[in-house]
Amino acid sequence: MSWSIGILLLVATVIGMEGFAYAAHRWIMHGPGWFLHESHHRPRTGNWELNDLYAAIFAVPSFVMILGGVQLGWWPGFTWIGAGIAAYGAIYFGFHDVIVHRRLPTRYLPKSTYMKRIVQAHRLHHVVETKEGNVSFGFLVAPRPEDLKAELKRRRHAGVRAPKAEAGAFPEK
């Protein structure tokens, strides 16, 4: 297989993974897989959360395709597709875990309109603590924050986390 076809397969896979990630997040993670994903909508108490298992689960097809394409004599395109899945995972980790959730220390502050939009859309996703009633399930493509806020308002803020009370804000009785 030519390099140009391989690179096209890789790029097409990265683009397609955003659609897959949207569907998996909306209908699996906020559906039957909520038992793992719920930990991501709660304050983390350590370095890890059950939701991190999704990274391992979604890495399996990538690993198998790369192995099959490189070592097992499968169609060479599987190598490029597997690499595209891995590339999306690396991009997702950088945006989601490093930039948005700051699971690794960074001084990066979003300055571009695009980056601010992604970060704000994901934070609006996290104001809802429940399985239902959420907005913004994609990650690299995000609706305008104004539209997400309007949708949350239309839903009467169902499932939205109560604001944290500041220390001393409420006198004890």
Results as ranks from 00 to 15, higher is better:
Lys116His: 04
Lys116Arg: 11
Lys116Gly: 00
Arg117Ala: 02
Arg117Ile: 00
Arg117Thr: 05
Ile118Glu: 01
Ile118Ser: 01
Ile118Gly: 00
Ile118Phe: 02
Val119Ala: 01
Val119Glu: 03
Val119Gln: 02
Gln120Gly: 00
Gln120Thr: 07
Gln120Cys: 01
Gln120Asn: 00
Ala121Lys: 00
Ala121Met: 00
Ala121Phe: 01
Ala121Trp: 00
Ala121Ser: 03
His122Val: 02
His122Cys: 00
His122Gly: 02
His122Glu: 03
Arg123Glu: 02
Arg123Ser: 06
Arg123Ile: 05
Arg123His: 08
Arg123Cys: 07
Leu124Tyr: 02
Leu124Glu: 01
Leu124Met: 02
Leu124Trp: 01
Leu124Val: 07
Leu124Gln: 02
His125Arg: 01
His125Cys: 00
His125Met: 01
His126Glu: 03
Val127Gln: 01
Val127Thr: 04
Val127Ala: 01
Val127Phe: 03
Val128Tyr: 05
Val128Asn: 03
Val128Leu: 08
Glu129Ile: 05
Thr130Cys: 07
Thr130Pro: 10
Thr130Met: 08
Lys131Cys: 06
Lys131Met: 08
Glu132Gln: 12
Glu132Cys: 06
Glu132His: 12
Glu132Phe: 08
Glu132Val: 11
Glu132Lys: 13
Gly133Ile: 04
Gly133Trp: 04
Asn134Thr: 15
Asn134Ile: 13
Asn134Gln: 15
Asn134Cys: 15
Val135Pro: 05
Ser136Pro: 06
Ser136Val: 10
Ser136Cys: 15
Ser136His: 15
Ser136Gly: 14
Ser136Thr: 11
Phe137Ser: 06
Phe137Leu: 06
Phe139Ala: 13
Phe139Pro: 00
Leu140His: 15
Leu140Thr: 15
Val141Gln: 10
Ala142Phe: 04
Ala142Cys: 15
Ala142Ile: 03
Ala142Trp: 05
Pro143Asn: 14
Pro143Thr: 11
Pro143Ala: 10
Pro143Val: 08
Pro143Glu: 13
Pro143His: 14
Pro143Gln: 13
Arg144Phe: 04
Glu146Val: 12
Asp147Leu: 10
Asp147Asn: 14
Asp147Arg: 14
Leu148Pro: 04
Leu148Ser: 11
Lys149His: 11
Lys149Tyr: 12
Ala150Ser: 14
Ala150Ile: 12
Ala150Met: 10
Ala150Cys: 13
Glu151Lys: 15
Glu151Met: 12
Glu151Ser: 12
Glu151Asn: 12
Leu152Ser: 06
Leu152Asp: 06
Leu152Lys: 10
Leu152Ala: 09
Leu152Phe: 09
Lys153Phe: 08
Lys153Glu: 13
Lys153Ser: 12
Arg154Cys: 05
Arg154Leu: 11
Arg154Ile: 09
Arg154Ser: 12
Arg155Val: 03
Arg155Glu: 08
Arg155Phe: 03
Arg156Val: 08
Arg156Gly: 07
His157Gly: 13
Ala158Ile: 06
Ala158Tyr: 12
Ala158Arg: 13
Ala158Val: 11
Ala158His: 13
Gly159Trp: 04
Gly159Ser: 11
Gly159Gln: 04
Gly159Val: 02
Val160Ile: 06
Val160Cys: 06
Val160Asn: 02
Val160Met: 07
Arg161Ile: 05
Arg161Asp: 06
Arg161Phe: 04
Ala162Asn: 08
Ala162Cys: 06
Ala162Met: 07
Ala162Lys: 15
Ala162His: 07
Ala165Pro: 14
Ala165Gly: 09
Glu166Thr: 08
Ala167Thr: 05
Ala167Asn: 07
Ala167Trp: 10
Gly168Thr: 08
Gly168Met: 10
Gly168Trp: 12
